[in-house]
Amino acid sequence: MSNGYNEKVIEVFSNPKNVGKIDNADGVGTVGNATCGDIMKIYLKIKNNIIVDAKFQTFGCAAAIATSSTATEMIIGKTVDEAERLTNADVVENLGGLPAQKMHCSVLAEEAIREAIKDYRAKQK
């Protein structure tokens, strides 16, 4: 494909993991807006401060879908604090890079996870 995506990104986009929603999620985060062409929604299941499951729903381009999939995979099994420190650079590195004009999509994944954690913490109070 001549779209600037590497093979890993195409593979993840073709077979994304953790697609869907979690009923009774402990934290839900939604970022982006449809006008800009990207919305990402992340659901977290958290037990004993560990992220035991994460799922996503994304309206967006191939990069947005690939970063959603990879970001959820990267945080499962991590503590909430560890997950909160995940950056878009970590996700992009895991994917082996993204075209420059697609970097903003990876920021959405980071932000959606932080929103979901914020939601989780708010519910804890």
Partner: peptide, 11 residues
């Protein structure tokens, strides 16, 4: 979004 459709059709 259109890109997802385009790339999946391409695949």
């Amino acid at each position: 979004e259109g890109e997802g459709i385009l790339f999946r059709l391409d695949l």
